[in-house]
């Protein structure tokens, strides 16, 4: 069986880079005495994967990790043992046992929900939202390993809503294309003819292709 679990990355933990997070989580699994699996070979490492790396500076409410288990442990036991050793702001929120043949969380991932707030609210942007979404294409400069090229951002934005002064954005994370919240804000503010304000961004959920939470 495999355990798929969601966890927080809140407050100061938003500053932890992806490699550091991997190491921190591996050590937490070891402290919690979870029956983890190690790779074979000369330098065995603890098998653990994450659905999607989170950029430094962005908070996460339900980040997703996945690990094979050596022997069975209940979901409740997993959550309790992990939370006994994890710091505040990095707790496991939910866990689910799945069979080994279940597609990896990383492969099931299709979209993410971001909550974006600005220093002085989004009043100025509200009027621009429908116009932004009604564009048939939104050209943007895409940076890839091989260089830069123009591409269309519009298909990567599934939904934008403003609720209680917080912008909720559902953006694509797929093999074909990924929209990042800072890119979105750059394009949105340009459309509204304003400078990008200081933002605080939180990734609230990771979703599968049916827009259901991964865990």
């Amino acid at each position: 069986m495999k355990m798929v679990a969601s966890f927080q990355k809140l407050g100061p933990h938003r500053f932890i880079g992806h490699l550091d997070l991997q190491r921190a989580m591996q050590r937490a699994l070891r402290r919690a005495d979870i029956p983890v699996v190690y790779s074979q070979g000369f330098n065995p490492h603890l098998l653990l994967s994450f659905a999607a790396p989170l950029s430094v500076g962005i908070e996460g409410e339900h980040e997703v990790m996945e690990l094979p288990l050596q022997n069975n442990i209940t979901e409740t036991e997993f959550v309790e043992k992990m939370n006994a050793v994890l710091p505040q702001g990095m707790k496991v929120v939910a866990a689910k046992l799945v069979t080994d043949d279940t597609a990896p969380a990383m492969a099931r991932l299709a979209a993410a929900v971001y909550h974006i707030s600005a220093e002085n609210g989004f009043q100025a942007l509200e009027a621009a939202l429908p116009g932004f979404m009604n564009q048939s294409t939104i050209p943007y400069l895409k940076k890839t390993k091989s260089g830069e090229r123009m591409d269309d951002f519009r298909p990567l934005v599934y939904n934008l809503t403003l609720k209680d002064g917080v912008l909720q954005a559902v953006l694509a994370i797929t093999q074909q294309g990924t929209a990042k919240p800072d890119q979105l804000m750059g394009l949105l503010c340009a459309h509204a003819g304003m400078a990008v304000p200081r933002l605080s961004i939180k990734r609230a959920r990771l979703l599968d292709e049916r827009f259901a939470p991964l865990v």
Partner: peptide
Amino acid sequence: EALLETVQRPSRYTGGEV
């Protein structure tokens, strides 16, 4: 906090370690 967002490896300055 705003300053920490601009520096290299900010988790050096936040404390809160296990």
